[in-house]
Design a binder for these strands. Structure first.
Lengths: 226, 226
DNA sequence: TCTTAAATGTAAAGTATCTTACAAAAGGAA
DNA sequence: TTCCTTTTGTAAGATACTTTACATTTAAGA
């Protein structure tokens, strides 16, 4: 890939705003652009955590499997997200997998080592990373709380609200969320079973609070969804 | 408190190893030493997250309460630990409380703003903080996994093992853990009920895998505790 | 020492949620 | 279109754990 397009590539990531042109040049020199087919793994548990990634196209899920095959989805990422960043904060070996969802993914990769060098020269960047990891930590702790304090139904509804807040498109009073999640995925995101997700969603549809099909969910009224 | 004793105070924290003597002086000037009685709160949800703390004596628990009064203990801290560090990573307002456990606590406080200035001048320090937050994130995610993948009994046993690993004293083949936790505390740490903790502990005692009283737990054989 | 509150022990009942099981629908491939 | 796989729908057990309830023990204070 040509330098110019790499540069264009990087312009999209707010993380790199603070870089001066020299730093940007260095960055383009150390970055590698990649494309992978849908359903492919970008990394797997056990691999070295020596790279970080920036998603430019497609959807990626981060998660783990238990010994008996259960899955937790830790996050679902969309373009402009950074992932694999545990390598920057001391992880030696991946605990999670990163997997392309139902579309081809485009992303760029760089070595943790290189990135750390960049951080050393640009304190702003270090701070941004710190804030980002902090945000991650807050998210993980909130999820912990919801898992302990709330029942399955509430967690599923919270998921719907979050999805609408983060990625919903307002349509009148309604909120439309397009996604690429199966109900099994939603279960793995909320720590519930697939059947529970099905029945909660159908119950909400019966009460006319939401409408949904395989590709999207429409929340009729965010307020009344409790 | 005199400058010398503040300096001595700070020597104990590995975080500050990398500071040069000038930076150490600056640090002593911005730090404030405090003592609080047992059971008192160091901070509460809703307060500004504008300070960070370093524990030098006593035990502190960090946690949250749900609306209906349930408690999650996020961590139990011992001397030399930093806490309240969410303020460094962008939290505006405390979500958690920090509370002294059954002993008087000694700690020092400094303003997030001051600390951030110090981080700007010492990149090593920034990196250490980043690693620390990373470690926290890893812990939170592991806990999430254990909550979803493992049953109550296993989580309680995992707690015993962790406690032994982190703070146990080897006594022959056995491991002695002195603590200041009630069984309710253990429940709040593992996301279980007090009664479940009681019955699991008693069952383990009956099987002669552990012995315990209010102040300590003796693990007879770490291997066989599964 | 006595009194009281807190912590622990024990048991039974209740219940939210998972499992198991199977059927129906939807989507992709040939 | 037809075939086959994946996803979704529905229902009835099974069950791990919480809740409720109360008794017993321990520690702390007066």
């Amino acid at each position: 890939m040509a330098i110019q397009s790499k540069t264009a590539f990087l312009e999209h990531f707010p993380l790199f705003e603070t870089l001066n042109s020299d730093e940007k040049l260095r960055l383009t020199q150390m970055v590698e652009v990649k494309v992978k087919p849908r359903y492919s793994y970008i990394y797997l548990p056990g691999e070295a955590s020596d790279k970080i990634f920036f998603l430019s196209k497609g959807t990626v899920k981060i998660g783990t499997h238990s010994k008996d095959g259960k899955e937790i989805i830790k996050s679902v990422l969309h373009p402009t997200a950074m992932f694999g960043e545990m390598g920057i904060v001391g992880e030696e070996e991946r605990q999670d997998f990163a997997r392309a969802m139902g579309q081809e993914v485009h992303y760029c990769v760089l070595k943790v080592e290189d990135f750390k060098r960049l951080m050393r020269s640009n304190h702003q960047l270090s701070i941004k990373i710190l804030m980002l990891i902090g945000e991650r930590l807050r998210r993980a702790e909130n999820r912990l709380e919801s898992l302990i304090f709330k029942d399955a139904r509430t967690r599923i509804i919270d998921f719907l609200k979050d999805a609408a807040d983060q990625r919903g498109r307002r349509v009148g009073f309604e909120m439309l969320v397009k996604h690429s999640l199966t109900q099994q995925d939603i279960a793995n995101l909320t720590g519930t079973s697939r059947q529970t997700v099905t029945s909660v969603l159908n119950e909400l549809r019966k009460s006319n609070l939401i409408y949904f099909n395989r590709k999207s969910i429409l929340i009729r009224d965010m307020e009344s969804l409790v």
